[in-house]
């Protein structure tokens, strides 16, 4: 059976698309699925860096399109698991939406999931990435501008043939939600009116550059696991990101 092809998009840059793509891919691979992560951000690619394999790249997407290698030869394996990344490479006239989709289709016979890390914005790169997918996850964070852009992207996605569209809320701070400083995941879901597939707590380990392949994640591990479970089972069970901030645990966290 062909892989599920899911685009990870947001509209606004900096909300964590690449981090979410890497974390979700890693969690699904840990659950035993075969996963290919495709960096569709031509020129500002970072998926290889997010997974700590930037020094192992031999070929990339532009090499495939220019017939310098086969699609499988451009895949970089991440750790011991069935997780691979395909880096985007330089801009090339051969990088049309149709050609991009053709490569994705050829890879879809050899794994369970393909995640396409969409570039920021809503121009050609966005169209190319979304056109190659069957499903979409729109990443946002609790910032007003991020939610506004996510809503615009959700409207744009209605113009494509996608079997499902959900949201992932990144960088949510449970302590700030409980104190009323930050909107809750439920509030954001109510505004965007789409199923919430993933809720990822703010995690300083990510900013420190610790990658999932190096087991450097702390709070986000469990959240990505729940996100992966929702994707695999096609459900939208909410992840309880507030429990770590309630009771004694929460008291000592706030004091730290």
């Amino acid at each position: 059976m062909a892989a599920r092809k899911i685009v990870i998009t947001s509209g606004k840059g900096g909300v964590g698309k690449t981090t979410v793509t890497a974390g979700l891919g890693y969690a699904l691979a840990a659950a035993g699925f075969g996963v290919i992560l495709v960096d569709a951000d031509v020129g500002l690619n970072n998926l290889d860096v997010a997974l700590g394999v930037e020094d192992r790249k031999l070929y990339d997407f532009s090499d495939i399109l220019e017939s310098r290698c086969r699609p499988g030869q451009a895949l970089i394996r991440c750790g011991e698991r069935d997780l691979f990344v395909l880096s985007s490479g330089a801009e090339t006239p051969a990088m049309t939406a149709q050609a991009f989709r053709g490569v994705i289709e050829s890879l879809a016979t050899s794994c369970d999931f393909i995640f396409i890390d969409c570039p920021a914005g809503i121009e050609n790169g966005f169209h190319r990435a979304v056109s190659a997918a069957d499903e979409a996850v729109v990443v946002t964070n609790p910032a007003v501008s991020a939610i506004r852009d996510a809503d615009k992207v959700l409207s744009l996605l209605t113009g494509y043939t996608l079997s499902s569209v959900g949201i992932a809320i990144n960088r949510i701070n449970g302590g700030k939600v409980l104190s009323g400083e930050m909107m809750s995941a439920a509030d954001i879901a109510r505004l965007l009116r789409r199923p919430t597939l993933g809720i990822i707590p703010e995690d300083a380990e990510i900013l420190l550059g610790k990658t999932p392949a190096h087991n450097g994640r702390s709070e986000a591990d469990e959240a990505f696991g729940a996100f992966a479970d929702n994707i695999a089972s096609r459900r939208a069970r909410p992840y309880d990101y507030l429990s770590a901030h309630r009771g004694f645990r929460g008291f000592f966290r706030r004091r730290a």
């Binding site: 007003v144 506004r148 809503d151 615009k152 009323g180 909107m183 809750s184």
Partner: peptide, 21 residues
């Protein structure tokens, strides 16, 4: 203490509506 969550929620309701008009 001012509840920024409620304030931002109401802001966003207006912003998202005006974007759709």
């Amino acid at each position: 203490m001012e509840n920024y969550a409620d304030k931002n929620f109401k802001r966003l309701e207006k912003i998202l509506l005006s974007d759709k008009i």
